[in-house]
């Protein structure tokens, strides 16, 4: 279980998070929605300890993120970055198998490669891409390699920052199904940021909407359509007029 309480974060004069309170139950899939630039990516980085909040506390399974020993703490996590963040000095398969090639989870190179190719298949990539370099891939392919890397060591907690942006509708369907499978079959806790309402409905157990640096609404996905909150209604139906300003 991940709990955030009163999390604040500002970059200079830019107040991004203004008191986030949110609980993500274990073994569930939480989807974060919200306008562009509202601090969704920053929120994930706070939980991972990559960005340090100005105030508030974040605990993962009862352990304070700021006090935890980094290595053991991060061993439980997988993260897909919004921009992919692949290591461009390494071929694709070594990117995917990065964790399997060093540290506590080290395997033989042949075994790590086999696992990498299997994970690539799960994100819809052929074995031939294994030996290419990230710069030789299209944007959507890079995204999927990033996804394969995030799930390669079968972490307990996985964060996906916009897993389906830049993918065609069929591939989006494949990825949505994969994320769902990881939660249901592997019992992982997942936190996904997405702007794609189809993905939200396919992936989510619960949904949280961030607006103005706070959690505007959170609840089970089934209640999302019924809520009378005008912000949520405007967002999920993509209307230009409503309480959310279109220039932010």
């Amino acid at each position: 279980m991940i709990t955030l309480s009163g999390v604040h974060k500002a970059f200079g004069a830019n107040q991004v998070l203004r008191g986030i309170d949110l609980t993500i139950p274990a073994n569930e899939s939480m989807v974060i929605i919200g306008g562009s630039g509202t601090g969704k990516s920053v929120l994930l980085k706070c939980i991972l300890g990559l960005v340090h909040p100005d105030a508030g506390t974040i605990t993962v399974a009862g352990e304070d993120v700021e006090l935890a020993s980094r290595e053991a703490f991060l061993a439980r996590f997988g993260m897909l970055f919004q921009g992919g963040a692949l290591f461009d000095s390494l071929p694709v398969w070594q990117n995917v198998a990065f964790r399997l090639l060093r540290g506590a989870t080290k395997r033989a190179a042949a075994e790590a490669r086999a696992i990498a190719i299997e994970k690539l298949r799960r994100v819809g990539l052929k074995p031939d891409v294994a030996d290419l370099y990230p710069a030789e891939l299209s944007g959507g392919m890079q995204k999927r390699v990033g996804l394969a890397r995030a799930i390669a060591a079968e972490p307990q907690i996985i964060f996906f920052d916009e897993p389906t942006t830049g993918l065609d509708p069929i591939m989006s369907g494949v990825i949505n199904e994969l994320i769902r499978e990881i939660v249901v079959e592997m019992g992982a806790t997942a936190m996904t940021i997405t702007h794609d309402m189809t993905s939200v409905r396919a992936i989510a157990d619960r949904v949280a909407m961030i607006h103005g640096g706070k959690v505007r609404w959170t609840g089970p996905v089934a209640e999302m359509d019924e809520t009378t909150d005008p912000y949520v209604q405007q967002f999920i139906h993509g209307r230009a007029d409503g309480p959310i300003e279109s220039v932010r």
Partner: peptide, 16 residues
């Protein structure tokens, strides 16, 4: 470049 493309953050999340 690794810093601005979040590759350094990715390294950290991969326990390196």
């Amino acid at each position: 470049t690794m810093k601005v493309t979040e590759q350094i953050d990715a390294l950290v999340t991969l326990s390196t």
